[in-house]
Design a protein around this nucleic acid. Structure first.
Length: 940
RNA sequence: GGGUGCUUAGCUCAGUUGGGAGAGCGUCGCCCUUACAAGGCGAAGGUCGCAGGUUCGAACCCCGCAGCACCCACCA
């Protein structure tokens, strides 16, 4: 089935010559396989080193739009530097993604009615490795479909033995320097996963809730205090009521005790600065074991925290009526019991920030447990300096502010996780609780022997490390650290990190800290921070919203039913399916057509502006698919008009104006494209190359070449130059485009190869075009501009008058300028066919030709088209009037400036001169147009 | 509470040091012209969020306001 966003053409595709249309499927996979087979992605250049370490995707994941975007950027940089001759490495690899991967496998077990505990730790981990073996190739295959030129021969996985050894090495060294410690602390606890989370893994959002005002009776029996809380169940763990020391209302109560309802305990009323007297009643219940602030308050007053929850966040108070109740059940029961005792003063609606685990969405509890922490501040200081003094540069620059903000307020990092999939913490305990941190069990035993004088039974810590701990080592662990390998010496520090702003804290900051600490230098010199890829409505793409686009579907196309099925299956909320289906059918009534990888990549690049999220719109990619087709056909034209006997060496000093012009433009385009690449303005690269290839090379140069090649008066020598230029400019354009469009450029380059003098076997290692390879000629440029203006004038008349494009027109050019006259003589054989002119007469302005004419202006030159029966006089009058109005308005504005003495006095002389010249031109044009109107009116 | 970004054509976005408002898509008109109808040619369309200020001159610099988005933070 043919999928198309356009109405079906009247002729069927089968009738047409299939080679007329670019078909990405026919080439992409074969070309990639050839590159990989030939080792084209391995570092080979002799220049300076250029290296990017890929942000390692989840090994069991699949490619989403964010990856596809990011990979496009990285691959463009990598291919550019490879072509430049740099020793270029794109380091490949994947991440074990502890929690995410474990959850997937656990869900599989649950579906079979099992839990990980049924299997036991070792069997479960085997199971995860098995899953990795099954699905681990998915994302790397998808990366290949994107054309990503990663060096797969060096692919790494965060749980490879050597990378795991690097993790242990770092852990031990940090521990030995007291930069890692273990302690009982209040941490964010995910009651579903039963693990601690770092602050970053907790997402707080506003939710509607209540503020319960609870009465705590005074022990003295004289009344009560009222405390306000959003979590009434935590009262079971209260150890005090706090008031502000200067709060007059409660001054006398400080030191007294209250009866804590439902518990039979009494707790003191204490004074602490932390309390805000203006909030609620000014009385604050203190629950040190279940609130981060209360923990601090409790510590200040030497109170022992009372834990009331078990790891699943059910009440854990044997003997209590609430024991075993889930926290939210307990809340209901407690509120109801307090109401029954008339201990609730009031319940007020209240929006509050609810912390949830980023993976499970479960409400996270502050929970008192033994955990491992990295002491962050000492590591942060050098990392801050590295950015301050410019050793690392953020692009765009303003992200450094965000970085500084976070780094200056950095908290210790909780790195232990109570899950099974990951790097096990290299710490062993003896029966007395002594800790031995070591690279392996033998080493731990040796340390234990030193202490005890004999071997003792040791037990390794059950916890694993936060996934981001190993990610933080990525730029150097993948290059061989802690060994001092050649690879490490060559490629570290890496050149640039390409990443989303969402992981600046999770990853970027930590790589900088660890890189400086262990690899002795910054991990990268630049950080290119890109925006998020959103859908066409600006919504974040998510499975639950059903608005996800799969990059592979854009490349290959997908039929509507398949797309609907994909978006509506496996939803957390199945009731959303109907709405998602409707929206999908409405937005993609014909499914998604196949656009090919190059079009997708070019689209991403065009959207890669700085400091903004990206709305992905199908219109854009369709336009760029058309651009691929344009290139394809331009190459067909060049091939049809040249033979392998001609070679593509660019004529050094071509005699033809068109050749000198296109070479000049090519030189300028090389410069502009390269500059844009260097400042990560991929949108500008796209703009520059797209308009050069389409609007200049195809629309003008090819058309002019066509005319000259068909002209018997053009010498064979000149035709030879034209053919060489056709090949050479096309070939250079392909090289310019290659970093962004690897497939089509390689395919066309290979098909052009027998016309080239180069010896290479792939465009991949051809030099990136340099501006100095092409000569510039300002005269040729202005001559062509002059011709374009005249052709534009004739075409404007034709278009505005609705004249059939096939209709040949007689044209008179009027000018008193010798340059105009010379150019008319020189270029009439180009002008006439391209503007479809049947006769061209050159006159001075003194001679007024007979009859009525439609008129257009081209600088100092007038274009006259005899009106005859072809042209509607009224249409011509309205066309001229419109033109006059426009010019007249401009002229007025010009004159207003020039008659303003302030402007003439104060503006720079060149600006004033320019304005004067412009006024003269406008005034001349207005006069000329007026006289044409008068003339037509008179003749009528 | 603190911070960041955004607001330009119907849509998605560019706009480099302040000096004649641009692109792609869409729309309208004429054309299947031998590379390409996934095409060619032409055209229409903007009080640059609002209100001030600086300047001879502001989409751009400064102040304020509004709307949208995001990040950080322990206010019960």
């Amino acid at each position: 089935m043919i999928l198309s966003l356009q109405p079906e053409p009247l002729t069927t595709v089968a009738e047409e010559d299939s080679s007329k249309t670019y078909d990405p499927h026919a080439i992409e996979q074969t070309l990639y396989e050839a590159w990989e087979r030939d080792g084209a992605f391995a570092p080979s250049g002799e220049g300076s080193a250029f290296c990017i370490a890929i942000p390692p995707p989840n090994v069991t994941g699949s490619l989403h739009m964010g990856h596809a975007f990011q990979d496009t950027i990285m691959d463009a940089l990598i291919r550019y530097h490879r072509m430049k001759g740099d020793k270029t490495l794109w380091q490949a690899g994947t991440d074990h993604a502890g929690i995410a991967t474990q959850m997937v496998v656990e869900r599989q077990l649950n579906a079979a009615g099992q839990t990980r505990h049924d299997l036991g730790r070792d069997a479960f981990i085997d199971r995860v490795w098995q899953w990795k073996a099954e699905s681990g190739g998915t994302i790397t295959q998808q990366l290949r479909r994107m054309g990503a030129s990663l060096d797969w021969s060096r692919e790494r996985f965060t749980m490879d033995e050597d990378l795991s050894a690097a993790v242990r090495e770092v852990f031990v060294r940090l521990y030995d320097e007291d930069l890692i410690y273990r302690g009982k602390r209040l941490v964010n606890w995910d009651p579903v996963l039963h693990t601690a989370l770092s602050d970053l893994e907790v997402i707080s959002e506003e939710e509607a809730g209540f503020l319960w005002h609870l009465r705590y009776p005074l022990e003295s029996g004289e009344g009560y205090v009222v405390v306000a809380t959003t979590r009434p169940e935590t009262m079971l763990g209260d150890t005090a009521v706090a008031v502000h020391p200067e709060d007059e209302r409660y001054r006398d109560l400080v030191g007294q005790r209250v009866l804590l309802p439902l518990t039979g305990r009494t707790i003191p009323i204490i004074a602490d600065d932390y309390v805000d007297p203006a909030f609620g009643t000014g009385c604050l219940k203190i629950t040190p074991a279940h609130d981060f602030n209360d923990y601090e308050v409790g510590a200040r007053h030497q109170m022992e925290p009372i834990n009331i929850l078990d790891p699943s966040a059910a009440i854990d108070l044997p003997g209590s009526a609430y024991h075993g109740l889930d926290r939210f059940e307990a809340r209901k029961a407690i509120v109801s019991d307090l109401e029954a005792r008339d201990l609730i003063e009031k319940i007020v609606d209240h929006t509050l920030m609810v912390p949830r685990g980023d993976r499970t969405q479960a409400v996270v509890e502050p929970y008192l447990t033994d955990q491992w922490f990295v002491r962050a501040q000492p590591l942060a200081e050098p990392a801050i300096r590295a950015v301050e003094d410019g050793r690392i540069r953020f692009v765009p620059e303003n992200w450094s502010r965000t970085y500084f903000e976070w780094m200056h307020n950095i908290q210790d990092w909780c790195i232990s996780r109570q899950i099974w999939w990951g790097h096990r913490i290299p710490a062993w305990y003896d029966t007395q609780g002594n800790i031995f941190v070591a690279l392996d069990a033998q080493e731990a035993q040796r340390k234990a022997r030193e202490l005890h004088g004999e071997d003792v039974p040791l037990r390794q810590d059950d916890d694993v490390l936060d996934t981001w701990f190993s990610s933080a080592l990525w730029p150097f662990s993948t290059l061989g650290w802690p060994q001092s390998t050649e690879t490490l010496k060559t490629f570290y520090p890496t050149s640039v990190l390409v990443t989303g702003f969402d992981i600046i804290f999770f990853w970027v900051a930590r790589m900088i800290m660890f890189g400086l600490k262990f690899a002795g230098d910054v991990p990268f010199h630049e950080v290119y921070v890109h925006g998020l890829v959103r859908d066409s409505d600006g919504q974040k793409m998510s499975k639950s919203k059903g608005n996800v686009l799969d990059p592979l579907d854009l490349i290959d196309g997908i039929e509507l039913d398949a797309l609907v099925a994909k978006r509506t299956s496996g939803l957390m909320q199945p009731k959303m399916a109907k709405r998602i289906e409707e929206a999908t059918r409405k937005q993609f009534p014909k499914g998604i057509p196949s656009f090919g990888t190059d079009a997708l990549r070019f689209t991403f690049a065009s959207l890669a502006t700085q400091g903004r999220d990206i709305r992905f719109d199908l219109g854009r990619i369709e336009g760029f698919r058309n651009f691929c087709n344009k290139l394809w056909n331009a190459a067909r034209f060049v091939e049809m008009n040249t033979t392998s006997i001609q070679n593509a060496r660019m004529p050094v000093a071509p005699s033809g104006t068109t050749e000198r012009w296109i070479q000049t433009r090519l030189s300028e385009v090389c410069e502009a494209a390269t500059e844009s690449l260097h400042v990560y303005r991929f949108d500008q690269v796209v703009q520059t190359l797209h308009s050069f290839a389409w609007d200049e090379f195809c629309s003008w140069y090819l058309e002019l070449a066509k005319i000259q090649l068909a002209d018997p008066e053009v010498s064979e020598e000149s035709k030879g130059e034209i053919r060489q230029t056709l090949i050479a400019v096309l070939e250079s354009t392909l090289r310019l485009l290659h970093p962004l469009m690897p497939f089509i450029t390689e395919a066309l380059w290979l098909s052009l190869k027998d016309r080239l003098t180069t010896s290479g076997s792939s465009i991949i290692n051809q030099p990136y075009p340099r501006t100095e390879d092409h000569s510039r000629d300002a005269t040729a440029v202005s001559d062509i501009e002059w011709m374009k203006t005249i052709v534009g004038g004739i075409r404007n008349i034709r278009g505005e008058m609705n004249i059939d494009p096939r209709q040949m027109l007689p044209v008179i050019l009027q000018s008193d300028h010798s340059t105009d006259q010379e150019r008319i003589v020189k270029y009439r054989r180009l002008l006439m066919p391209i503007a479809r002119v049947e006769s061209l007469e050159a006159l001075g302005t003194a001679v007024e030709p007979d009859g009525e004419h439609a008129t257009a202006l081209a600088g100092s030159l007038r274009i006259l088209v005899p009106m005859g029966s072809l042209i509607d006089r009224d249409a011509e009058l309205s066309r001229l009037t419109k033109e006059i109005d426009r010019k007249h308005a401009d002229l007025e504005r010009c004159n207003a400036k020039l008659t303003n003495p302030q402007f003439v006095d104060r503006a720079p002389a060149d600006v004033v001169a320019k304005e004067k010249l412009r006024a003269e031109e406008l005034s001349r044009d207005v006069d000329a147009l007026r006289s044409r109107i008068e003339r037509i009116s008179r003749l009528a």
